[in-house]
Design a protein around this nucleic acid. Structure first.
Lengths: 236, 236
DNA sequence: ATGACTATTTATCGATCGATAAACAAAAAG
DNA sequence: CTTTTTGTTTATCGATCGATAAATAGTCAT
């Protein structure tokens, strides 16, 4: 393990001809507006913790930001608070309410809706940052993952099942709650998509196929599969 | 968590001088045979690192073992060496060569073979230790996951595809290499099973359904799905 | 310019972690 | 018994980490 000396020390031994040009502070450290600095820190923290996990050191994060480590504590009271901000940034801010409208827009064929939703959803979660941070959070525990997935189930999965019920003339989920088999089918589809991210960003195995075409195929298979486990039609 | 016996008192009935203990037969620190001590440390390390990740501290591991922390270094030259031993213990030792025989035993119907293989494989990898250690290893990088999955592909996935090719009268994988679509179908089945473990042991969401019945259903769907992407039949 | 304000840096603390050396003690050997 | 061997503990080092306080330097109002 080798030590790393700072590369930007202007007073180090290396000759830096002190050109009389103090009015070109391009490379110099900037003094930023607090809101802007905070945003920059949060953004870099997302990338940093996604790469190194939450045990990544604040000193290295600061180095990537070209600031000193104590400055982090001017904007976030603790490392844990910074991590909480990362959660907010990724798992809350990146959720798009429009997805729920896509699922329930009955002017569009069901299969088309599902393909569009899962494509858009996959585009958000199938990123280096999302996948790895979600996994790091899960391994650390926190209720975060269970909480997120409960939200996902309410806002998406149950709507999907409701739409399928309607499509095939079955009782509404309000009359007959979502069955274990139905939700398990949805989990299966979700697993297939999520695992694409795991292969890429956790196992470092590049995909050999186009993601969208995989999603299209999985949605088609899913629609056929879930139909076979749908509760019986209403009598008369 | 259900299975897994964590009892400290294993079956060491062979080597035990154990003359009448005058006082406090248990609770006393033992002086053990090196091979036995090493095995105990390795076993506990599997459990410990699965729970806390590889950043778990050697002092806490030692405390769980009721030994002092420097003693660990009598049996393993470094923490990293201990982690390597954990990999060996879980990802190498738990692989069963008999699985490869199950897949290729053509005296048994293909579907039966696949169900049996995936059930047995799931029984091994769907454990708290296996799932979490594999994920920790992936996030840490190391070539471990890619290496393991390359082995899995060679020893299992490609054999599965070869058997399906034969079943449906298609050219052997020796004549026509495994296609991207075929391997993607296998990945999909693997994802569904693996994700069951992720839900349980990383998200802490207990399954509501029997694992074997899910596997049976997935294998059936898989067999139908992979057939539709099989390469064309040989010309008469 | 001058001084007030504050974003940023320098310096450092206390705790923690992996690892090593020496002391200790329980067996085994003579 | 005494001596030797060795499994285990005690003590401690050097590095690292999150966090705090004080000093510094850039910016703006007057």
């Amino acid at each position: 393990m080798k030590l790393q000396n700072r590369t930007q020390a202007h007073e180090s031994g290396v000759k830096k001809p002190n050109r009389a040009r103090p009015r070109t502070p391009i490379r110099e450290q900037q003094r930023l507006d607090p809101s802007e600095r905070e945003a920059i820190i949060a953004r870099e923290a997302v990338s940093f913790f996604a790469e190194h996990g939450f045990e990544g050191q604040t000193r290295e994060l600061a180095r990537r930001l070209r600031i000193t480590q104590p400055l982090l504590y001017r904007y976030f009271p603790s490392k844990e608070a910074l991590i909480e901000r990362v959660y907010q940034e990724v798992f809350v801010e990146r959720w798009k309410p429009s997805w729920e409208k896509i699922i329930t827009d009955r002017s569009v064929p069901l299969k088309t809706r599902l393909i569009q939703f899962y494509r858009e959803y996959a585009e958000v979660i199938l990123t280096y940052e999302w996948i790895r941070l979600f996994m790091f959070a899960g391994l650390k525990d926190l209720g975060l993952n269970a909480r997120y997935l409960r939200m996902l189930r309410e806002r998406a999965f149950e709507k999907v099942i409701e739409e399928i019920r309607l499509e095939y003339g079955r009782p509404s989920t309000r009359e007959l709650p979502v069955t274990v088999l139905e939700i398990e089918m949805v989990w299966g589809l979700h697993a297939a998509i999520f695992y694409l991210g795991v292969r890429q960003f956790i196992y470092s195995m590049p995909l050999e196929t186009d993601v969208n075409s995989i999603i299209d195929a999985k949605v088609a298979t899913f629609l056929g599969g879930v139909r076979s486990v749908l509760p019986a039609k209403e009598k008369g």
